[in-house]
Amino acid sequence: MRDLADSRVALFLPCYIDQLAPRVGFATLAVLRGVGVAAEFPRDQTCCGQPLANAGCAAEARPLAERMLRIFADFDYVVCPSGSCTAMVRHRFADLLGPAAAALADRTFELCEFLIEVAGVDTFSGRFPHRVGLHHGCHGLRDLHIGTCSERAEPAADPVGRLLAGIDGLELVGLRRVDECCGFGGGFSVEERGVSAMMGRDRLDDHRAAGAEVIASIDMSCLLHLEGLARREGAGVRLMHVAEILAAASAGGEG
């Protein structure tokens, strides 16, 4: 494991986590502390602008991207518990800001990426005695390439799964469709209600059929959508961010 004591690390917290699931922010800080990183939370951050850029409003997203560049300018690493928001910074900021975006793009990591690639964590210790279904968020998988998507004729890789699989008592369940989209998609979830809900229900069914007690993901936005659907149906499955599982595991078992 690499010593990062001298590095300045910032937590980039997606706005919907700040507002709707603050516990994931604290879990992220706890996980980072566990690998010797005291992350700071720059208070000026709000939203990276992804919802606006995805809506097609690049001009309105641009000032938000510029703010991000300023806010995180002084950090060695920027860590974000979301594949989607990390992909926004790493890939989409260049569309908005041109080459200036590279400075931040190169230093921004999704949490699991950071743990594996920067901190050099191989496996995560601790205990979490549950059957877990891992939902691969599309942006983490296909934009950040955290793992291989099932349609590529390439050797399979699943670093997040490997991280979880090392945890004592945690059993990863096998899904029929290992990485199909959950149907959230930001504005898509309300503009394409029928398809969005059907996609989400299909994911829930797949996880339940595989015997998952917990559905985990590196993306809280997928989980909030799935949780909303599960709630409506009264489906007995818990939805947890990977950071919450890692934090719960190292804290000794029950999340």
């Binding site: 699931a21 603050p22 409506r232």
Partner: peptide, 15 residues
């Protein structure tokens, strides 16, 4: 949003 989904329990305070 709620046409097919329940609302999340809103935390009392943001992060």
């Amino acid at each position: 949003w709620t046409s097919s989904r329940g609302l999340p329990d809103l935390p009392k305070k943001t992060f």
